[in-house]
Computed example of a mutant assay.
Amino acid sequence: MRLRALAKINLGLDILGKREDGYHEVRMIMQTIQMYDVLEMKKKKIPGISLAVNYPFIPSDERNLVYKAAKLLMDEFQVEEGVSIHLDKFIPVAAGMAGGSSDAAAALVGINRLFRLGLTERDLMERAVNIGADVPYCVMRGTALAEGIGEKLTRIARMPQCYVLVGKPGINVSTKAAYESLKLDQIQTHPDIDGMVRDIENSDLYSMVNKMGNVFESGIIGKYPVIREIKDLMEEHGALKAMMSGSGPTVFGIFDDKKKMEEAAAVLRESRLAKTVFGTEIFNK
């Protein structure tokens, strides 16, 4: 079985406050894009999970979310056979694109199919939250409003068709570090999440991009000015809007024209500001 684990971008990311349990209350608009890792899975007679990854620095044991996801279902349903999984990573690691969460979601879907467990998408999403806050969304995919800690999901209308340019600089930002540097009382502008939902429902791409925003951005850009440089370059070369995704450091630009996006990608590669440059489209479910 071969499965694609799709990356996500945050079209809007707002944080409302910190909860008593230490988590943050968020409101986000999530969108999957056609950038993906690949999981190859096959049954084996010997019990247990064997995981291989194409990068040696990525763990292939219980620390990997793919392993955790497979184990979660195999333990619950007392699966006696084993599974062999090969993960081919393409989505940048620690990049604010939910690569690890999407891999875990694909593993849940794969184990469910491979061993015919009969779980629905909703069943998988309910279990996915035990692995990570973004994993239920990565099972669902498409365009969604995420609330709570990211686990309360409402599917919204399909985002208008557009092109996305991804640029990740050669730095990593952990989600934990991004939250630690966040000063909630100093956030001056918040994205208009409700307005964005209305614009998406009205298929108004141009109005939607004007309301986009990410409250993490200013704090992270303060530490890593290269993020601002990538944003500016994309917008100077035709992006309707360029913004940091999630807790960063990846920047994505929204384009209404494929040729413009390809030309901006060429300029970004030449600039050497980004280690990963990838032009793609959104994924509408």
Score class of each variant (00 low, 15 high):
52 A>S: 14
23 Y>N: 14
206 Y>D: 12
27 R>Q: 15
69 A>G: 06
178 A>R: 11
168 K>H: 07
159 M>R: 02
269 R>V: 11
29 I>F: 12
190 H>I: 12
36 Y>D: 08
47 P>V: 09
270 E>G: 07
155 R>Y: 02
240 L>I: 13
154 T>K: 13
154 T>S: 11
210 N>I: 03
176 K>M: 14
230 I>E: 07
123 D>G: 06
51 L>I: 05
228 R>N: 14
152 K>W: 04
258 K>R: 15
112 N>W: 11
285 K>S: 10
63 R>V: 03
264 A>F: 06
213 G>F: 02
215 V>F: 06
38 V>G: 04
7 A>N: 01
109 V>S: 00
97 M>F: 02
98 A>G: 15
269 R>M: 13
211 K>N: 09
147 E>A: 10
264 A>H: 07
134 D>Y: 09
265 A>W: 03
113 R>L: 12
27 R>M: 14
237 H>T: 13
63 R>S: 02
38 V>K: 13
219 G>M: 14
188 Q>D: 15
202 N>F: 03
168 K>M: 09
249 P>W: 13
104 A>C: 04
172 N>P: 00
182 L>I: 06
72 L>H: 06
18 K>C: 11
133 A>L: 07
220 I>E: 05
281 E>C: 09
86 H>C: 01
129 V>Q: 12
49 I>P: 00
211 K>V: 11
19 R>W: 10
4 R>N: 14
208 M>Y: 08
243 M>A: 10
12 G>K: 09
242 A>S: 13
237 H>F: 08
71 K>W: 03
181 S>D: 13
228 R>E: 15
144 A>Q: 11
203 S>F: 04
85 I>T: 03
54 N>H: 08
43 K>Y: 01
247 S>H: 07
239 A>K: 11
263 E>H: 07
38 V>N: 08
177 A>S: 14
138 C>Y: 04
136 P>Q: 11
71 K>E: 14
122 R>M: 04
57 F>T: 12
261 M>T: 14
109 V>I: 15
240 L>Q: 13
274 A>E: 06
263 E>C: 03
97 M>Y: 02
67 Y>A: 00
7 A>S: 04
44 K>F: 01
92 P>R: 04
102 S>P: 03
204 D>Q: 10
224 Y>K: 11
145 L>P: 07
20 E>A: 11
66 V>D: 00
12 G>R: 10
74 M>F: 01
32 T>N: 15
255 F>V: 07
124 L>T: 08
249 P>K: 13
255 F>G: 05
257 D>K: 07
101 S>W: 09
72 L>I: 10
242 A>Y: 10
50 S>W: 00
95 A>Q: 02
126 E>F: 00
193 I>A: 06
90 F>D: 12
89 K>I: 01
282 I>C: 06
37 D>F: 04
37 D>M: 05
269 R>Y: 08
50 S>F: 02
113 R>H: 12
80 E>K: 15
162 C>M: 09
227 I>P: 05
199 D>P: 01
92 P>T: 05
182 L>C: 06
130 N>K: 15
97 M>T: 05
70 A>R: 06
164 V>Q: 03
267 V>W: 01
199 D>S: 15
115 F>R: 07
107 A>Y: 03
93 V>E: 07
169 P>C: 02
166 V>T: 06
177 A>Y: 12
